[in-house]
């Protein structure tokens, strides 16, 4: 237990040490690569500024995550409910992924303005496909035995979808959610780079232009913290969503539970 609490701390410490060693060995000037202490100092000094911009970015990420997941879930459910839809919607989905989101950013900016809407749209767009694909796969791969059993029990199609297919797809949905949580920040930050007046991405670009490299690194650090925290939060949520999925990685006996 103590080891589990200590491990993230040790990893952070080790990475920081590595960073400091690179600074020492390369003897890079502070405006190219500032040391961890200097960045930490800037972080504390500029905390109000960083918090203000971080709040904007966090809001964009969360809204994008929400929209992307809801949209993906709805698409997957429609695909599974209306079989004919698949032939029409699947190619559209694939094409939507073939166009790099980065290339779409200026267009979205043009349409939705420099405010939050365009960044939320970017995050949504980048999340949409992985979530849809994961959910659709999960819904499609319900063990046929479960469905046959439900039919002998006289379940309606609706009951089969809601009480058999949907819960059986939850583990797949959970992995889609994890992927979404790790790519959502990319969408938001790219949006901010292309054009904005707030957010961590804007702050980084701005600091870079003014050679405030320490501030840029501080913003990067905050962004990384947000991304990691978000991932662990979603991971925790996903585990709560699928409590029957025992962690076979942590427990070597879990796989043989059936033949105990």
């Amino acid at each position: 237990m103590i080891a589990r609490m200590l491990r993230p701390l040790l990893i952070t410490l080790g990475l920081t040490l590595l960073w400091q060693c690179v600074v020492w060995l390369s003897a890079a000037p502070p405006f190219i690569l500032p040391g961890p202490l200097q960045v930490l100092d800037t972080l504390l000094q500029q905390l109000p500024l960083l918090t203000r911009h971080a709040a904007v970015t966090l809001a964009e990420i969360l809204l994008g995550l929400l929209c992307g997941v809801l949209l993906g879930l709805a698409s997957a459910l429609s695909l599974i409910t209306w079989g004919g839809l698949r032939r029409w919607l699947m190619p559209v989905l694939v094409v939507s992924q073939a166009i790099p989101v980065f290339a779409l950013a200026p267009v979205l900016m043009l349409w939705l303005g420099y405010g939050m809407a365009s960044k939320v749209a970017m995050a949504t767009l980048i999340i949409y496909f992985p979530v849809t694909a994961a959910c659709f796969d999960g819904l499609r791969r319900t063990p046929t035995g479960y469905l046959k059993l439900a039919r002998t029990l006289g379940a309606s199609r609706r009951a089969q979808l809601l009480q058999i297919r949907l819960p059986a797809a939850l583990p797949a949905f959970a992995s889609g959610l994890r992927v979404a949580a790790s790519v959502a920040p990319i969408g938001a930050v790219v949006g901010e780079w292309v054009g904005s007046s707030t957010g961590l991405g804007y702050l980084m670009l701005n600091a870079n232009a003014r050679m405030q490299v320490d501030l840029m690194f501080a913003a990067l650090l905050v962004l990384a913290l947000i991304a990691v925290a978000l991932y662990f939060l979603i991971d925790h949520l996903a585990r709560r969503l699928t409590p029957w999925q025992a962690d076979t990685l942590l427990n070597p006996d879990a796989g043989s539970a059936g033949s105990r």
């Binding site: 439900a150 029990l153 006289g154 309606s156 009951a159 009480q163 819960p167 059986a168 939850l170 029957w244």
Partner: peptide
Amino acid sequence: LLLPWLSVLDNVLLEARLHQH
């Protein structure tokens, strides 16, 4: 064919659950 997300009791009750939301 026990549903892993339901308790043992709810698995026995599956028919009733499927008909009563």
